[in-house]
C-alpha cells in the first residue's frame, strides 16, 4: 500500500450503509470510472476494513490505502483495468 497522498477523482459517501452496500456502491462506481481513476470511500461500517481489501484482490484493482479515523473508515482505490 502506498503512503503518498493521492488526490481522489471521486468521493463516495458510504456513511450509514451496512454490509454489503458499501462494496456494492464501490463496485458500481469503479465500473463506471475510467482506468487510472482514484476513488475515495468514507464508510462507518467496520466491515469495510476486511471487505475492501478482499474486493480489491478479487477484482484486480489497487487498494491505495485504508485506515480508521475515529468512527469512520477511509479508503482509496485505483481502477487498474
Amino acid at each position: 500500500m502506498s503512503t503518498t497522498i493521492t488526490k481522489p477523482d471521486q468521493v463516495l459517501d458510504l456513511k450509514g450503509l451496512l454490509c454489503p452496500m458499501p462494496i456494492v456502491r464501490l463496485s458500481i462506481a469503479v465500473k463506471k470510472a475510467g482506468v487510472g481513476a482514484v476513488l475515495e470511500g468514507i464508510a462507518t461500517d467496520p466491515g469495510v476494513m476486511a471487505d475492501v481489501p478482499a474486493w480489491a484482490r478479487q477484482s484486480g484493482n489497487e487498494l491505495v490505502s485504508i485506515k480508521q479515523q475515529g468512527k469512520e473508515y477511509h479508503f482509496l482505490v485505483k481502477k487498474t483495468k
Binding site: I23, V24, S27, D51, A54, W55, Q58, S59
Partner: peptide
C-alpha cells in the same frame, strides 16, 4: 455481476 463479486470477495477473504 454484483452477486458474483460479493461471493468471490467473501471467498478471497
Amino acid at each position: 455481476e454484483i452477486l458474483v463479486m460479493l461471493a468471490d470477495s467473501a471467498i478471497e477473504k
